[in-house]
Deep mutational scan, measured.
Amino acid sequence: MQAFVKTLTGKTITLEVEPSDTIENVKAKIQDKEGIPPDQQRLIFAGKQLEDGRTLSDYNIQKESTLHLVLR
């Protein structure tokens, strides 16, 4: 499924993900596309910070959801 990641600069990245993907996995995909190390990434969805060990389905993130990427 497709999900979108919006950065603070307003850029939107499109990712191909599965509901079973972990947040860690998603961060690795963002690193592949953008070169941002996962340890600098914080992903926010519905106002919550997403934890590495959880999956997209844990957070009820469905296709075409938009996550927000904040860098630390």
Rank of each mutant, 00 (worst) to 15 (best):
M1K: 04
M1F: 15
M1A: 03
M1Q: 04
M1C: 04
M1G: 04
M1L: 08
M1Y: 12
Q2A: 09
Q2S: 10
Q2F: 13
Q2D: 06
Q2Y: 14
A3T: 12
A3D: 02
A3G: 03
A3Y: 10
A3R: 02
F4C: 07
F4N: 06
F4Y: 14
F4W: 06
F4L: 08
F4D: 03
F4H: 12
F4E: 04
V5H: 01
V5E: 02
V5K: 00
V5Y: 02
V5T: 01
V5G: 01
V5D: 02
V5M: 02
K6C: 11
K6Q: 11
K6Y: 08
K6S: 08
K6L: 11
K6N: 06
K6H: 14
K6E: 09
K6F: 06
T7A: 05
T7I: 12
T7M: 15
T7C: 11
T7Y: 13
L8V: 14
L8C: 14
L8Y: 13
L8K: 10
L8M: 14
L8I: 13
T9Y: 14
T9K: 10
T9S: 13
T9A: 12
T9R: 09
G10Y: 03
G10T: 02
G10I: 02
G10H: 04
G10N: 05
G10C: 05
G10W: 04
K11M: 10
K11Q: 09
K11G: 07
K11C: 09
K11F: 09
T12V: 14
T12P: 03
T12R: 07
T12W: 10
T12L: 13
T12K: 06
T12H: 05
I13R: 01
I13W: 05
T14L: 12
T14E: 09
T14W: 08
T14Y: 10
T14H: 08
T14P: 06
L15F: 07
L15R: 00
L15N: 00
L15A: 01
L15V: 09
L15M: 05
L15K: 00
L15D: 00
L15I: 13
L15W: 01
E16N: 12
E16S: 12
E16F: 14
E16C: 14
E16Q: 13
E16H: 11
E16A: 09
V17N: 01
V17I: 07
V17C: 06
V17H: 01
V17G: 01
V17K: 00
V17L: 10
E18Y: 15
E18R: 14
E18H: 15
E18S: 15
E18C: 12
E18P: 02
E18F: 14
P19L: 12
P19K: 07
P19N: 06
P19M: 10
S20K: 09
S20W: 14
S20I: 06
D21A: 06
D21N: 07
D21C: 06
D21L: 05
D21I: 05
D21T: 10
T22R: 08
T22S: 08
T22Q: 04
I23G: 02
I23W: 02
I23K: 00
I23R: 00
I23N: 01
E24W: 15
E24A: 15
E24V: 07
E24M: 14
N25V: 14
N25S: 14
N25L: 13
N25H: 12
N25K: 14
N25Y: 11
N25W: 09
N25R: 14
V26T: 03
V26W: 00
V26Q: 00
V26G: 00
K27W: 03
K27H: 02
K27P: 00
K27Y: 04
K27I: 03
K27R: 05
K27F: 03
K27T: 02
A28H: 12
A28V: 12
A28Y: 12
A28P: 00
A28F: 12
K29C: 03
K29D: 02
K29H: 04
K29L: 09
K29Y: 07
K29F: 06
K29I: 06
I30M: 03
I30G: 00
I30P: 01
I30Y: 02
I30D: 00
Q31N: 10
Q31K: 10
Q31V: 04
Q31D: 05
Q31T: 10
Q31F: 15
Q31L: 10
D32A: 14
D32Y: 10
D32P: 02
D32K: 13
D32G: 09
K33C: 07
K33M: 11
K33L: 13
K33W: 07
K33S: 11
E34G: 06
E34V: 15
E34D: 05
E34F: 10
E34R: 05
E34A: 13
E34S: 14
E34N: 10
E34W: 15
G35K: 06
G35A: 05
G35L: 04
G35Y: 03
G35Q: 05
G35H: 06
I36R: 02
I36P: 04
I36W: 14
I36F: 12
P37V: 05
P37W: 06
P37R: 08
P37S: 08
P37Q: 06
P37C: 07
P37G: 05
P38Q: 13
P38C: 09
P38N: 06
P38I: 15
P38W: 11
P38L: 13
P38K: 14
P38F: 12
P38E: 07
D39M: 09
D39Q: 12
D39F: 10
D39V: 10
D39R: 11
D39K: 10
D39P: 07
D39G: 11
Q40I: 12
Q40C: 11
Q40G: 06
Q40K: 12
Q40N: 10
Q40E: 12
Q41P: 01
Q41L: 06
Q41G: 03
Q41T: 04
Q41E: 01
Q41I: 12
Q41V: 09
Q41D: 01
R42F: 13
R42M: 15
R42N: 12
R42V: 15
R42A: 11
R42K: 12
R42S: 12
L43D: 00
L43W: 01
L43G: 00
L43H: 00
L43P: 00
L43Q: 00
I44M: 12
I44W: 15
I44D: 05
I44P: 00
I44R: 06
I44F: 15
F45C: 04
F45E: 01
F45L: 07
F45P: 01
F45M: 07
F45V: 03
A46S: 08
A46T: 05
A46Y: 09
A46K: 15
G47R: 04
G47Q: 04
G47V: 02
G47W: 04
G47K: 04
G47S: 05
K48Y: 10
K48V: 14
K48R: 11
K48L: 12
K48I: 14
Q49R: 10
Q49Y: 14
Q49D: 15
Q49S: 12
Q49W: 15
Q49H: 12
Q49C: 13
L50E: 01
L50M: 09
L50C: 04
L50V: 04
L50S: 00
L50P: 01
L50R: 00
L50F: 02
L50G: 01
E51T: 06
E51W: 06
E51V: 09
E51G: 04
E51M: 11
E51R: 09
E51P: 02
E51I: 09
E51K: 09
D52G: 06
D52Q: 05
D52R: 04
D52Y: 04
D52C: 05
D52K: 04
D52I: 05
D52M: 05
G53C: 07
G53D: 12
G53S: 12
G53Y: 11
G53Q: 11
G53V: 06
G53L: 08
G53W: 13
R54F: 14
R54Y: 13
R54G: 05
R54E: 05
R54N: 11
R54H: 13
R54L: 12
R54D: 05
R54M: 13
T55F: 07
T55H: 06
T55G: 02
T55L: 08
T55C: 06
L56A: 02
L56K: 00
L56G: 00
L56N: 01
L56I: 09
L56V: 07
L56M: 05
L56C: 02
L56S: 00
S57I: 09
S57T: 08
S57N: 10
S57A: 14
S57F: 10
D58A: 05
D58Q: 08
D58R: 02
D58C: 03
Y59F: 04
Y59W: 02
Y59A: 02
Y59R: 00
Y59I: 04
N60P: 04
N60I: 06
N60G: 12
N60T: 05
N60E: 08
N60A: 08
I61F: 10
I61L: 06
I61E: 03
I61C: 03
Q62R: 10
Q62T: 14
Q62A: 11
Q62F: 11
Q62H: 12
Q62M: 12
Q62S: 11
Q62D: 10
K63P: 15
K63H: 15
K63W: 10
K63F: 09
K63L: 08
K63A: 15
K63G: 15
E64T: 08
E64D: 15
E64Q: 10
E64H: 11
S65W: 05
S65G: 07
S65M: 09
S65F: 13
S65H: 08
S65L: 08
S65Y: 08
S65C: 07
T66M: 09
T66R: 06
T66D: 05
T66G: 04
T66E: 10
T66F: 08
L67Y: 03
L67S: 01
L67M: 09
L67I: 12
L67E: 01
L67Q: 02
H68Q: 10
H68Y: 15
H68M: 12
H68G: 05
H68V: 12
H68R: 07
H68S: 06
H68T: 11
H68E: 10
H68P: 02
H68N: 08
H68W: 15
H68L: 15
L69W: 01
L69M: 08
L69Q: 02
L69T: 01
L69V: 05
L69A: 02
V70M: 11
V70F: 14
V70Q: 10
V70G: 05
V70I: 13
V70D: 08
L71A: 08
L71Q: 08
L71F: 08
L71P: 09
L71R: 08
R72C: 11
R72G: 11
R72Q: 13
R72F: 11
